[in-house]
């Protein structure tokens, strides 16, 4: 194994982690502020990807598509919050799980209705095509580097938003004491809608970015959603810092596990067996990691005040 290969795999893990962070940040924010578990977050990821694909093919510009993904997912989030989600804040988690599970069915079938069953394909914009040389003689796709950069920018933006702005102050207040903030005269209903739309927009943005790399299809958000759950459980539900750390941890461990486990096993068993068993073991690795972390810290690495 060369250094270049290890570096490339590390970057791959980082890129996966950054994507997961965009999903997990919204989930954890919504839980932290409103105490709501939202299974339909993966559907908003899908909405973003479809919006980007549809607009990009209509206008011929990926960049307009990207903006559309942000806007459409935020709009879908706001509508869903107004129509359904706000009725769920004072319900128990069981009702929230079911209502948002129902939303998944509606979103998935609805999208299939609109766009058909065939996957859509987005092309990577010309500016970000191809690969660049890395130190050590390796090459790496420009687009994946761009995803990492975009994720880092969003993380920084969220940090500034929550730490330095009025909206951020209200969010922090909402996280620590929900009754108090209402008493302070903040319009809490609007705040909730804004936070939900913000989380949705982040998910939609992630969906559009990944859509160009893979394919845009119904159900694409579900595997990501479950990984994002693992991320926020590890990081501590409600904590943005935990989401970032958890996302990077899951991204890197998952990628490195898939890459290294078969190789380690190959020292003991024939290569084709090693590939099969290693693959099976690697797919469970992050769940084992989650179990271990929870065995030590039942509320995750950075548990929020309430959960």
């Amino acid at each position: 194994m060369t250094l270049a290969l290890a570096l490339e795999q590390l970057l791959n893990g980082l890129q996966l982690g950054v994507m997961l962070f965009l999903m997990a940040a919204g989930l954890t924010l919504i839980f932290g502020v409103m105490g709501l578990i939202n299974l339909a977050h993966g559907s908003l990821y899908m909405v973003g990807a479809f919006a980007c694909a549809a607009v990009a093919s209509a206008t011929g510009s990926f960049w307009i598509g990207l903006i559309a993904s942000f806007a459409c997912a935020a709009a879908a989030g706001a509508i869903v919050e107004l129509l359904v989600i706000r009725r769920l804040y004072d319900r128990d988690h069981l009702d929230q799980v079911l209502a948002t599970f129902a939303l998944i069915l509606i979103f998935s079938e609805g999208t299939r209705w609109l766009f058909g069953s065939f996957p859509l394909y987005l092309d990577i914009p010309r500016l970000l095509q191809g690969a660049v040389a890395l130190p050590g003689g390796a090459q790496y796709p420009v687009y994946r580097l761009a995803i990492i950069a975009a994720g880092a920018l969003v993380a920084l933006g969220l940090y500034l938003l929550i730490g330095k702005t009025r909206l951020g102050m209200r969010i922090r207040a909402g996280e620590s004491d929900r009754e108090m903030i209402g008493a302070l005269g903040v319009d809490i209903r609007t705040l909730y809608t804004v936070v939900f739309a913000l989380g949705a927009a982040l998910a939609g943005f992630a969906g559009a970015m990944v859509g160009a790399l893979q394919s845009v299809q119904v159900g694409m958000g579900e595997p990501v959603l479950i990984l994002a759950f693992v991320v926020i459980v590890i990081g501590g539900i409600g904590s943005i810092k935990g989401a970032l750390l958890g996302a990077l941890l899951v991204g890197v461990v998952d990628t490195m596990g898939r890459f290294l486990l078969p190789q380690v096993l190959a020292l003991f068993v024939p290569p084709s067996q090693a590939g099969l068993i290693g693959g099976a073991a690697a797919s469970m690795l992050i769940y084992v990691m989650m179990a271990l972390i929870l065995a030590v810290k039942p509320r995750g690495l950075f548990a929020a005040a309430h959960a």
Partner: peptide
């Protein structure tokens, strides 16, 4: 492991363990 937690953690952890079994069966 799961019952050490409660509420929304419990929901997500049981989900994650089921996914673990699922991926094991697939591969």
């Amino acid at each position: 492991i799961s019952l050490r937690t409660s509420g929304v953690y419990f929901i997500m952890i049981t989900l994650a363990f089921a996914q673990m079994v699922y991926y094991f069966a697939i591969s």
